[in-house]
Each structure stands twice: as structure tokens, then as C-alpha cells.
């Protein structure tokens, strides 16, 4: 378990991280979400022992990162932002160096390196110098370094930043695959990623935690959650909207955009879990419009994100 206790960091008079506390258990993938400069990287740097906190601490598997720094760091795999690597080493030498630092010797060392190369799909480039590799490969090399010693805790700072969609997909698969045996904290500002990978999301803004919940629950905080969107063809959409607005349980209904024959309409419920769809469909069949598209909104993370961080 990683336990973050009242972590705070001040740079001069500016507070970068302000009293952040949370726990991550094994099996969880915690998404750390926030606008740029919200304090994500600073928090991660404090958890990994790279910079000392102004106050508070992080306890990693029972070891305090401040007082028992070395045993705590042994349990962590860390992928820093921008995936730094030594450009003039070959992939193999680089990982062998990391393995040696992590206490692997002789045969154990080569085995650990070979296994990791395979896991991260790097076997083909292992004799190449890192500066001849593309950004995606470098990211993977640094990722390989983080999982080399099969750590119990993984801290990943924007693990998919700068990758193409295929590479992002690969990295996400690797993360998900490892999740059962590890506690993983990953930071991102990509909301889809949150949805695709994380079991829990913490949103931070100006150094403070503003939300801590499962991504699905976060979505329900959206104004859009439970709203019904329709695309109507022909007929008189204004009349339909006026009628829909009078349905019991509907808070409001409006035309979002109108173009030639087609109109986009959205109907908002009073309570998010009211079952409105049936009554709306009945009203629709009574009107002279035909629907080409009906959709019940789940809520959007980006909208929730914008609302609570701005």
C-alpha cells in the first residue's frame, strides 16, 4: 500500500502541493488527473523521494520515504515525465545498468534484462544506441527500466505522453496486465486514458485534491449525465421541444443546432437517474419528426474536469 500523508510542497511563497492525502491499495490503478501545473509531477517526485516535501510524507509498503528512503525506493518503479534515458548507451547496456543498481548480479541480471526486453517489445532494438530510437521506443525503454525489478508499486508520470495511438494502446495494455499484482499511480491529462485504464481517479487542481472517485462515478457529476440527445429529421422540432419540456421529470429541453432539415435536440432530466427515454419516445412518435439518432448521455469527464478545476 502507498499511503500519502498530508503532503505539501512550497517553492518560495508559491504552494505547489497543498495537504494532499490518499491511499492506494494493490490492484488499484489510480489516475492522477489535473491541468498543467496543478502539482501532479511535484507530488510524484515527492512520493519517489526525488524532492523532499515541505511537510507530510509518503509511506511505501511500510517504509517512510523520508526516514527509510532506500528500502522505500527499492519497492518503487518510477517513470519520470518525458522519460529520461542515457542517449549514448545501448538499450541492453542501459537496462543492465539499471538492473545492477537494483541489485541483480550475473545470470540473474541478464535474465531480468532479457525478460523485460521481451515484455516491452524491445528485443529487436536491444543492440541499438538509445539516441537512434524514436520517441515511442525511448518511452518504452524508460518504462522497461521502471518494471525491471518487478516492483510492488509503480509511479508513472504521463506514461503515454507523445506516443501515437497504437503505442498508447500498447502501453495501456502493459499497465492493465500488471495491475492485479501492483499498486499503480499514473498521471495524465488525457481523459480517455482515465476511462480506459484507471479504476480510480483523483483530480487535483492548484495543489489540492478536488475529486477522488471511480471514473464512472465522476461522470455522473456531469450536467449531461442522463440527458437524452436526439437528431431529428424533418417535421417541426420546435413543437417537439416545447412538448418535451412539459413532460413530467424533464428539467429543460433545447435545440442545440439546426441545419436544413436536421436538428439536434437535448433533453435534460430533473434527476439524473429518472427513466425518461420511454416517455420521450412516445412524445416523439406523436410528433411529425423522425429521429435518426437517439442517445442517452453517460456524462463527460472533460466537462466534469473543466467544472471542478476551473
Amino acid at each position: 500500500m502507498i499511503e500519502i500523508r498530508n503532503l505539501a510542497k512550497k517553492f518560495g511563497t508559491k504552494t505547489a502541493v497543498d495537504d494532499v492525502s490518499f491511499k492506494v491499495e494493490k490492484g488499484e490503478i489510480l489516475g492522477f488527473l489535473g491541468p498543467n501545473a496543478a502539482g501532479k509531477s511535484t507530488t510524484m517526485r515527492m512520493i519517489t523521494g526525488f524532492i523532499p516535501p515541505t511537510s507530510g510524507t509518503a509511506v511505501i509498503g511500510g517504509h517512510d520515504i523520508l526516514t527509510e528512503s532506500i528500502p522505500a525506493r527499492r519497492k518503487i518503479g518510477y517513470l519520470p515525465e518525458n522519460a529520461p534515458v542515457y542517449p549514448d548507451m545501448t538499450v541492453f547496456d542501459y537496462l543492465a545498468f539499471c538492473a545492477e543498481i537494483r541489485g541483480f548480479r550475473g545470470g540473474k541480471r541478464s535474465r531480468a534484462v532479457e525478460e523485460t526486453l521481451e515484455k516491452c517489445f524491445l528485443t529487436d532494438v536491444k543492440r541499438q544506441t538509445i539516441n537512434t530510437l524514436s520517441k515511442g521506443f525511448r518511452q518504452r525503454v524508460c518504462f522497461a527500466q521502471a518494471i525491471l525489478h518487478d516492483p510492488e508499486y509503480l509511479i508513472l508520470d504521463e506514461p503515454t505522453d507523445g506516443l501515437d495511438p497504437n503505442q498508447k494502446h500498447e502501453v495501456r495494455l502493459m499497465i492493465k496486465e500488471m495491475a492485479a499484482r501492483k499498486a499503480i499511480i499514473l498521471s495524465t491529462h488525457i481523459l480517455d486514458e482515465m476511462d480506459a485504464v484507471c479504476t480510480r481517479a483523483i483530480i487535483i487542481s492548484r495543489g489540492r485534491i478536488v475529486a477522488d472517485d471511480a471514473p464512472a462515478n465522476l461522470k455522473t457529476r456531469s450536467n449531461l449525465h442522463g440527458a437524452v440527445s436526439l437528431t431529428l429529421q424533418g417535421g417541426d422540432p420546435e413543437a417537439f421541444v416545447a412538448k418535451a419540456a412539459r413532460i413530467d421529470g424533464v428539467a429543460s429541453a433545447k435545440i442545440l443546432e439546426k441545419e436544413d432539415d436536421a436538428a439536434k435536440v437535448r433533453i435534460f432530466p430533473k434527476a439524473p437517474d429518472a427513466a425518461l427515454l420511454n416517455t420521450i419516445l412516445v412524445a416523439l412518435s406523436e410528433s411529425d419528426c423522425r429521429a435518426s439518432d437517439v442517445f442517452v448521455e453517460q456524462g463527460r469527464l472533460d466537462e466534469v474536469f473543466r467544472r471542478i478545476t476551473s
Partner: peptide
Amino acid sequence: RMGTIELILTFPIT
């Protein structure tokens, strides 16, 4: 400059 200091100082070494 390369940011690798972040790796070396988070390795389990002093």
C-alpha cells in the same frame, strides 16, 4: 539537462 538525474536520485542508492 537530460532529466536523468530524476532516475539516478530515485534509484535505491544514496
